[in-house]
Design a protein around this nucleic acid. Structure first.
Lengths: 335, 335
DNA sequence: TTGAAAGCGCTAACAT
DNA sequence: ATGTTAGCGCTTTCAA
């Protein structure tokens, strides 16, 4: 049996109320009493029971980190882990615990969003990896529990989000290609159910336009964020546009696949075709040739998301936090 | 305000006791009553309050996943993320939620092991990444909360562990090198505060012995699990043993560093020096040359750990779960 | 088969 | 400055 405030009260010869107040630093308590209570609590090695407190306070000091099924794709961990760390560190800093959850692939196991929240009395939720067509999204908007979305640009009274500016990132990538002389630039995009795909395409178009290049939808291959899409994308794009000299990929894994396919086409990178990826996962540095890519501040995304959520928990409104991407030039575009 | 069993009781015209029993599937309840209660609960969209239940049951159906500071090293995410997934999936399957925690670098923030457990009423704890000299370890052994250690071979009444057989893994690696003709085999090990380092060295020695090769401590470089150690290890080892033809590295990141250093020495891999890594992180497949390595079933480790912990929670004793590593031969040893 | 009552450990009116 | 009392939502004796 563990020590409760009752034990302390008995030992200190005061009521449990006094103990509670002393422990929680209320002002209306005699310094000597407080001191004695604190000392005894320490002697008894007292640990407050967060569960009991949650029950009466109706606040659990816990946030849920929900990772959508989508994000459990083979390559996603490069991306997710840093975000998890950022979320955890910032949450801990602010006195919150993080419960991990995932929208599971097998339907039967699936727990509804609200169910999770109410069951565990979550104060708020962080949601990442949801697709535009995810049914969770509607639940989130309907729910009263504050929520911060990662990479999904929705905003409402109870909803905010954190993103990296994808339009900007894509523009930087394409502008970089233009700057080093490319005019025939293809794109391999992620799947259409990701918000980021939409913005990256937009950035690609903008950059072309800004440089007086015409946008041709056929020069964009819609795949997914995995390696395979890179392979298929190159095959399609190159057979249709043999004179393509540059490729913007919506993820580093796509770029990895592209690199492989380009090699099979006998194209040298960057001499024949320059390649830019997106994400700056560890692999980008180590692959051959090292990949020029758009860096996303993943740890910061997690931190900012947790920060925003806690702000919302204390009455703040949902807002949009947009972080800046960064171009990392490596040898896949310049030698 | 959310729906409670009281609301259901009122609406159904029964006592809250009856509602509780009906909801929890007790047998001593009239089928018709149960049915009505269930229907009303559903109509009202009732969600049991896990916090209240935890308070009275003294079981939170929550386990803590504590990741030691150590494990937050730059390269560790390759390894950890899969374990987290395994833990989460298996825990969810068995009705447990997972709270994420970390032993934080800044001392002041540091929460004691027991504090975390009692505060959140954790039913059990999973601990990974602790060093042999970590003070958490003693707390764990002293504590009454069941605990499963990952990659730390301790066992007690309340403690079990999950590991991959590191002696075996190292032997496989070295045996592989011997099999393809190497006799002068160096090793770059991780730091000494990791249990796995000890076992991998043991496996290295065993394999040498089994093949009639003599063990020379100078042929082992003790570094850490990061890339830098690989670079430094190669430099040290090669300047002392210019005729070394093979290298066993205690992590893939070490091997990556080794590959880089070897190149600077003008050594071709695998022609001049063969390299074997450990872990089989994603990078191993993509680096040039693709790395021969020892695969660790990371997702399984997480799953098994959660499984063991839950078994212990229902009265099981601490036990040792040992998984099998697997040799993945790639081009860093054979062309 | 059902209900009344106690209580898990804590906080928070409302006295005093 | 301190104590009394009433809950938070649930489970669980014990009686009926």
């Amino acid at each position: 049996m563990s020590v409760t405030i009752k034990d302390i009260a008995k030992r200190a010869g005061v009521s449990i109320t006094t103990v509670s107040r002393a422990l929680n630093g209320y002002p209306d308590i005699h310094p000597r009493t407080r001191e004695r209570v604190l000392r005894i609590a320490d002697e008894l090695n007292f640990r407050p029971n967060a569960v009991a407190r949650s029950l009466v306070m109706k606040k659990s000091k816990t946030i849920g980190l929900i990772i959508s099924e989508l994000t459990c794709s083979p390559s996603s961990h490069h991306f997710i882990f840093d975000i998890i760390r950022g979320v955890h560190d910032q949450a801990a800093l602010m006195g919150y615990d993080v419960i991990l959850s995932a929208t599971s692939p097998n339907q039967q196991q699936e727990i509804s969003y609200m169910e999770l929240c109410t069951r565990r009395q979550l104060d708020g939720v962080l949601l990442m990896g949801v697709r535009t067509d995810d049914r969770y999204l509607q639940e989130v908007l309907d729910a009263s529990v504050p929520c911060v979305l990662i990479d999904v640009p929705l905003i409402s009274k109870t909803c905010g989000h954190v993103m990296v500016d994808n339009v900007c990132g894509a523009r930087m990538a394409v502008q970089h290609l233009v700057d080093i002389g490319h005019r025939r630039i293809g794109m391999i995009n992620g799947h259409r159910q990701a918000y980021v795909s939409f913005d990256r395409l937009k950035g690609y178009r903008q950059a072309l336009k800004e440089n007086g290049l015409t946008f041709d939808p056929d020069q964009v291959f819609d795949g997914n964020f995995e390696e395979d899409a890179g392979v298929e994308g190159v095959n399609r794009l190159l057979s249709r546009f043999p004179d393509m000299t540059a490729l913007f990929c919506a993820s580093d894994m796509i770029a990895v696949g592209a690199l492989r396919a380009l090699q099979q086409w006998g194209k040298r990178v960057p001499e024949d075709v320059a390649v830019v990826g997106y994400d700056d996962i560890d692999l980008a540095r180590y692959i051959h040739p090292p990949l020029t890519t758009i860096h996303q501040p993943r740890y910061q995304m997690g931190k900012k998301a947790a920060e925003l959520l806690v702000r919302m928990l204390s009455g703040g409104k949902g807002e949009a936090v947009v972080l800046e991407p960064q171009l990392i030039a490596r040898e896949s575009t310049i030698r």
